[in-house]
Simulated assay, not measured.
Amino acid sequence: MFEALILGLVQGLTEFLPISSSAHLRILGEFLPNAADPGAAFTAITQLGTEAAVVVFFWRDIVRIIRQWFGALTGRVPRNDPDARMGWLIILGSIPIVVLGLLFQDQIETVFRSLYVVATMLIVFGIVLGLADWAGAKRRKLEDLTYPHGVYFGLAQSLALIPGVSRSGGTITMGLLLGYERAAAARYAFLLAIPAVFGSGFYQLFKSWGEPAVYGPLETAAATVVAFVVAILVIAFFMKWISRHSFLPFVIYRIALGTTVFVLLGTGVLEPF
């Protein structure tokens, strides 16, 4: 239970920062007494807690988007209504991760969880995030989001199927490359993650029911609750941070963590699997 609570704490702290929560759970699992990968199922289920925090934090936005989207379907709301349009953009942007998640499910649960892959992704996408933050125009607002850009965001989000990329990091990086403001890119990234994370989490919950796992149902549930509470605080902090600061501290941290993992692998302290 203690290990699960620690992992839940780390999940909540890292899910919405562009540093990859799945990478942190994968690495941290090696240093806990069980010395085992918590697994893709545990990661996906605890993400239900962090995504519930998004629903709470953006509750008014979500209710308004859903109401206007249904209104547009029935003709009570103009089809070009910004919130109705955002509903379609979230649906469109969610398609890539669903398709790729099903196609590469076996690799996601096996090959992609190699610590060599994790360390590489931390460094490579840390550098890409830094370059995007430095070179991006940061002029476009959320109202400027187009359907093609929604697809690009969705493709970037699907890269988070590989531990080390970061769901928020990948989508925010794409937003910066497309010229969106930091806050706009982050806001859409958080909203876009809702269908994907809930879908993945409940699918893994159903799939893993009754199967042996490193952590049982009670431990996983406790970790999910901890992740939820911590994530609400992190979202509030992060949205304020990016309105005034760059992503450089996160870039440096990613590169340092990835390099450390490579050193530990090279010295035999860690094993790839």
Rank of each mutant, 00 (worst) to 15 (best):
Q107C: 11
R140V: 01
I108R: 13
I97P: 02
Q105Y: 07
I123P: 10
A119P: 03
G154T: 06
V117S: 13
G126W: 02
A119H: 01
L103P: 11
M121T: 07
V111F: 12
L122Q: 10
E143I: 09
E109L: 04
A137K: 15
L142S: 06
I108Y: 08
L129D: 02
F104M: 15
H149W: 13
S114H: 07
L145F: 00
W134G: 05
T120S: 15
F112Q: 05
S158T: 11
E109A: 14
Y152L: 14
T110D: 14
Y116T: 12
A119N: 01
A135I: 10
D144Q: 08
L115I: 08
Y147D: 13
W134E: 00
Q157R: 02
V124L: 14
F112R: 13
R139P: 04
F153Y: 14
I108V: 15
K138R: 05
L129W: 05
T146M: 03
R140D: 01
T110S: 15
G126M: 08
R113P: 12
I95P: 00
E143A: 15
T110N: 15
H149D: 15
S114I: 12
D106H: 14
L115A: 05
H149N: 13
I95V: 15
L145V: 08
F153R: 00
L100N: 02
G101W: 09
A132M: 08
A135Y: 13
R113I: 12
R139N: 09
M121Q: 01
K141R: 14
V111N: 14
E143G: 10
Y152F: 11
A137Y: 01
I97C: 11
F125I: 04
V124C: 10
I97Q: 08
Y147P: 10
V99Q: 02
W134N: 00
V128N: 01
I97L: 10
R139L: 11
W134L: 10
Q157F: 03
P96G: 02
L131S: 02
L115S: 03
P163H: 11
G101E: 09
D144L: 07
I97V: 15
S158I: 09
I127R: 04
L100Y: 07
Y116F: 14
I95M: 03
H149M: 14
F153C: 04
G154W: 03
F125H: 02
P96W: 00
T120F: 10
A137P: 00
G101Q: 00
R140Q: 12
V128P: 04
A119S: 05
G126C: 04
E143N: 13
T146K: 05
K138G: 01
A156Y: 05
A156L: 06
V98C: 06
Y152H: 00
V151S: 05
T146H: 08
F104A: 14
T146V: 06
F153Q: 07
F125S: 02
E143V: 11
Q105W: 06
L115D: 03
V151K: 05
L161A: 12
G130E: 07
T120A: 15
T146Q: 03
D133S: 03
V98Q: 00
I127L: 10
L131G: 01
T120Y: 03
G154D: 03
D106V: 12
R139T: 07
I127D: 04
A156V: 06
V99G: 04
V151F: 10
R139K: 14
L102N: 06
D144S: 11
L122N: 07
I108M: 15
K141W: 02
A119Y: 05
I162A: 13
A135K: 15
V124T: 11
G126E: 05
L161D: 02
I123N: 03
H149T: 04
